[in-house]
């Protein structure tokens, strides 16, 4: 692993930094989220158990399970093909549950593929209202299309475009999910190659893009609208620095219901808004994955 990153972890975690590094080497445990648009959670869980899968309820989402043992790949069961569940890290439910979109709303998903969060929002919206899902990459858009169809989601309008240009659509949204493109360092347990390639410069590169996405979110959100910002990164540059930028624009952080540690109000020479502790951090050695969520309202 890059020495700069190891040093960063020492600065951020103190004596615990070895635990963080060790957590990237443990066995990756898949999770599934039940698609309640098609089936009840207890029915599908029972069916999978009968087929020899060992499931454990997620602590993040009542409709998600960790897959502790697979008799064969959980992505090749008839139940998967029937759209009864989506294979998705359990932590990924958190930003959607915080956004809590309802069936009358117009919602924007600024980085939609492969569709885990879009289809989860569709469930909460009971397949009504509308989710505008943006994705710039064609192959990833095809994955989104297949997953939306497999899960029976009717309230999605998907556009292949750069989310930074969402204001060109002429729409104003009640809620926005900004699950931002990021360094992905929180998911290194799933992708260990990232341990070698990650560097500080990458944090800064993503931070620029993330702030540009915040700019667009601000433009297209209705007054009193809600945005949930999330990343699977632990970097200050991709999290607190971006949220500070959002606060300076006029967003206000609000309380979140989920667990997780308070975000940092200061780090090294950086001092952030005192409300920054309302944002949440998740760590691989404590919560299974490195993740960050911030829920904000646009007051004017």
């Amino acid at each position: 692993m890059n020495e700069e990153i190891v040093r960063r972890y020492e600065q951020m975690f103190g004596d615990e930094y070895n635990k963080v590094l060790a957590s990237f080497s443990r066995k990756y445990v898949k999770s599934i989220r039940i698609n309640t648009l098609k089936i009840k959670q207890d029915i599908i869980a029972e069916r999978l158990k009968k087929k020899g899968f060992v499931l454990q309820k997620s602590e993040f989402n009542e409709n998600s399970f960790k897959v502790l043992r697979e008799k064969y790949s959980i992505s090749s069961t008839p139940e998967y093909l029937m759209g009864y569940y989506f294979i998705q890290d359990e932590i990924s439910s958190v930003p959607v549950l915080e956004l809590n979109p309802n069936e009358n709303e117009l919602v924007l998903d600024m980085a939609a593929s492969p569709g885990g969060k879009t289809t989860h929002m569709a469930e909460l919206m009971k397949n009504k209202g509308c989710i505008v899902s943006l994705e710039i990459n064609k192959d990833r858009m095809e994955s989104l299309k297949a997953n939306v169809s497999r899960l029976g989601v009717k309230n999605v309008v998907a556009l292949r475009m750069d989310a930074r240009r969402a204001d060109e659509l002429g729409l104003k949204f009640d809620k926005i999910l900004l699950d931002a493109p990021c360094s992905g360092e929180g998911m290194m347990v799933r992708d260990r190659k990232r341990m070698d390639s990650l560097n500080l410069e990458e944090y800064n590169r993503f931070s620029v893009l993330q702030k540009e996405l915040v700019d667009t979110a601000y433009k297209v959100l209705k007054k009193n609208g809600i945005v949930v910002y999330s990343t699977c990164s632990m970097a200050i540059e991709e999290n607190e620095s971006v949220i500070q930028y959002a606060i300076d624009k006029g967003f206000k952080l609000v309380k979140q219901e989920n667990m997780g540690d308070e975000a940092k109000t200061e780090f090294l020479d950086n001092k952030f808004d005192k409300t920054m502790n309302l944002a949440k951090r998740f760590y691989p050695h404590k919560h299974g994955t490195g993740f960050f969520t911030a829920k904000m309202v646009k007051n004017f």
Partner: peptide, 13 residues
């Protein structure tokens, strides 16, 4: 959005 000459890649199922 079609009035803005924007067209979805896909929509729904």
């Amino acid at each position: 959005i079609q009035k803005k000459e924007r067209f979805p890649f896909f929509a729904g199922i």
